[in-house]
Design a protein around this nucleic acid. Structure first.
Length: 680
DNA sequence: CTATTAGATGTTTTT
DNA sequence: CATCTAATAG
């Protein structure tokens, strides 16, 4: 391939030398180690443009990312460049691992022995199914605390994604569940069988099936031959399964991986930074480019970040150097408690806004979803609008699940989970009657068919018969082969609406969600794919769709650190940075656990452009609400060592000094006090 | 049988 | 806060 650059290549002119080297690398595998804020996306997009300029057809480029947000941004930017570079070319193929996997699996569903119109379970559905199978399988109640359904799913998912024996997963990550190993083995087997019987896949199955396709002699070769280049973003967060998939593609395509081992924060999901550290084992002879020039943050902020990352010397050495000037020292705020923290954050948010930083250019970041509970109240009190990322999700709302169940059922009557859920919406129908109904709907072959409804309906209580008939009629109508997706969704919505109205007192509000879903279905392809994509790429907040009315408004962003990955804000407030939360108590059992928490803290710090505030309340309540005021004294995160602390302006709100009669600066040691001792 | 309630209880983080 | 249990009323 010739390396003559296109005569006008503005996207290359703007790159620094390292970025340029990465963008125009020609030949074997390429690993770009891109520290936080070093122009990773710019580089990746420039590389896409360069590949296009070298004559690679756009549709033969595959861009794999980790989040929907990243996928959207990159694919859009890449496509825009592509249109300039090669106007007649096709489109760059891209998406998250799961969504790309889903597309392929659906295309080759027959070869995989999947029913047509198979559904995809989200984590909630999968946990429910696991729970159902557990109850049926006898290892139900009675035994000593069996892992809860979500924990069981975590264990399963981790086993699958890491491709590691269950025993090892239990020993390493779930030692308190080890005694249930045999029961779990049995449970997971039954779960697999049941998924097959129901014609459903879970999220992990999408990767598993993709890998299976890739491993197939014929189909695998064809899949690999579809692409000339695969570019993988956030490579530090891939798991074994994902590496396998990329490797299978690499038998034909060139591979570019971008990532930062110091931002690996998805260990709990079986991701491992080992894969980026051992990149050359999977992809021999890689070129390595390290990006350290940071275009995001002020030197003072990077000093803190570098000091934190220097605490861990495993991995690739990297030191971020700021290309930005000015800025004020980051602030370490030590409020007395959660309530004072909320006030301090709100004060600073408003102060920054007074100085011209819009709310949407500020973010509050935290470790766990309940950390900002009091802050949310305080923001409400002061009339500061905010949006929570990763908070209440659409798909977790009961009425949405009900509707989605109906949609799934329409495509796949064998999906008992969904049938079960829908039937129980009928007044007077609980688990037992739903079961009888379903059994009565089976034909000789055991297939569920609506033809038997006239006999099955006798199991429905008198008062609900009319509703039941309407529901079944709508289901039948929605299954009409020629019906458009939007119409099918609409019919089901209309049939469900009266039931949901009876069930939910606030149905008026919930109905809007259903309308949005119907509207989205109208502009979608096939219904089965629509529902599955909904599950794989769920709207992150109701904002995603409720959008327009609020779009112009200014609002503060509240986000977990995990969800904040890859994003940046002018002002960042990291709250609840006390030891026990940063690092989380549960993670302090192992060195690797602590290391991952440190990286998480590092990710939080490096989201800030010009101003960084870290808050560590020193007193916390054992119970979230003020119901009892048992409290303990904590200390600031262990990652804020003396050396790190020296890089901060330390602020102690007025109330704290009074509450600490000892005075004379912070005590050298903080001993955790708990009332538990008294409760013997 | 289903529905509703009260009370206890529990290892974060998410595609 | 969500989920599970037990207990009770319809």
């Amino acid at each position: 391939m010739s390396t003559v650059l296109a005569p006008d290549a503005p996207w290359l002119a703007e790159l620094n030398p390292e970025q340029l080297r990465a963008a125009t690398h020609d030949g074997g595998p390429l690993l770009i180690l891109a520290g936080a804020g070093t122009g990773k996306t710019t580089t990746l997009v420039a590389r896409v443009a360069w590949l296009l300029s070298q004559g690679v057809p756009a549709e033969r480029l595959l861009l794999l990312t980790f989040t929907r947000r990243a996928a959207r941004e990159m694919v859009q930017r890449a496509r825009a460049l592509g249109e300039r570079t090669a106007p007649r070319a096709g489109r760059v193929v891209g998406g998250t691992f799961h969504s790309v996997g889903h597309r392929l699996v659906r295309r080759h569903g027959a070869a995989l022995g999947l029913v047509e119109g198979f559904g995809v379970l989200d984590a909630g559905d999968a946990a429910d199914l696991l729970d159902l199978v557990r109850q049926e399988g006898g290892h139900a109640t009675g035994r000593r605390r069996f892992p809860r359904k979500h924990t069981a799913l975590d264990i399963y998912s981790r086993t699958v994604n890491a491709q590691v024996p269950l025993s090892d997963v239990l020993a390493e990550s779930f030692p308190w569940c080890e005694e249930h190993r045999d029961a779990l083995v049995e449970l997971f087997r039954a779960y697999g069988e049941r998924k097959r019987a129901l014609g459903v896949l879970d999220l992990d199955d999408l990767l598993l099936h993709w890998r299976a396709l890739a491993a197939d002699e014929v189909i695998g070769r064809r899949l690999a031959a579809d692409f000339d280049h695969v570019l993988v973003d956030e490579y530090q967060d891939v798991n074994r399964l994902q590496v396998d998939v990329v490797r299978s593609l690499a038998t034909h395509a060139g591979v570019t991986a971008v990532g930062d081992d110091f931002q690996a924060i998805y260990g709990f999901r079986a991701a491992s930074a080992r894969h980026i550290l051992d990149f050359e084992l999977d992809f021999p002879g890689p070129a390595l480019v390290t990006l350290e020039r940071n275009y995001r943050s002020t030197p003072a902020i990077l000093a803190v970040a570098n000091a934190v990352s220097a605490q861990d010397r495993s991995g690739y050495p990297k030191t971020l150097r700021s290309e930005i000037e000015g800025g004020r020292p980051p602030e370490l705020v030590l409020p007395l408690d959660d309530a004072e923290q909320a006030c301090e954050v709100a004060d600073r948010v408003l102060a920054a806004r007074e100085e011209g930083v819009d709310l949407r250019r500020q973010a509050v970041l935290y470790r766990t979803n309940h950390d900002p509970a009091l802050l949310e109240l305080e923001l409400g009190r002061r009339g500061i609008p905010f949006v929570k990322y990763g908070g209440l999700r659409y798909l977790e709302a009961a009425h949405v699940k009900d509707f989605v169940a109906a949609l799934r059922l329409s495509d796949n009557l064998a999906d008992e989970m969904s049938a079960f859920r829908v039937l129980q919406l009928l007044d007077g129908v609980g688990p037992t009657r739903a079961r009888r109904l379903l059994d009565a709907l089976r034909d000789e072959a055991g297939e569920v068919t609506l033809d038997r409804w006239s006999r099955a309906r006798e199991h429905v209580p008198e008062g609900s018969l009319a509703h039941a008939d309407a529901l079944v009629a709508a289901l039948g109508a929605s299954r009409a082969p020629d019906a458009a997706t939007g119409l099918r969704a609409e019919r089901l919505r209309d049939a469900l609406a009266p039931l949901l109205r009876l069930r939910y007192p606030d149905f008026a509000v919930r109905a809007l969600d259903l309308d949005q879903l119907v509207a989205a279905a109208r502009s979608a392809g096939e219904l089965d794919a629509f529902v599955s994509e909904l599950v794989i790429d769920p709207p992150s907040s109701s904002q995603d769709w409720a959008g327009p009315p609020h779009l112009d408004e200014d609002y503060l962003v509240l986000s977990t650190v995990h969800s904040a990955k890859g994003l940046e804000w002018e002002v960042v407030h990291v709250i609840a940075a006390y030891d026990g939360n940063f690092p989380a108590d549960m993670s302090t059992g192992s060195a690797e656990g602590i290391a991952e928490e440190r990286r998480l803290f590092y990710v939080a710090l490096t989201r800030a452009r010009r101003r960084l505030h870290v808050y560590a309340p020193v007193r916390f309540h054992h119970r979230p609400t003020g119901a009892n005021d048992a409290h303990g004294y904590g200390r600031v995160s262990r990652f804020v060592t003396d050396e790190v602390r020296a890089l901060f302006d330390v602020r102690r709100p007025a109330a704290t000094d009074e509450a600490r009669p000892t005075g004379g600066g912070p005590p050298a040691r903080r001993i955790v006090v708990s009332v538990d001792d008294l409760l013997r």
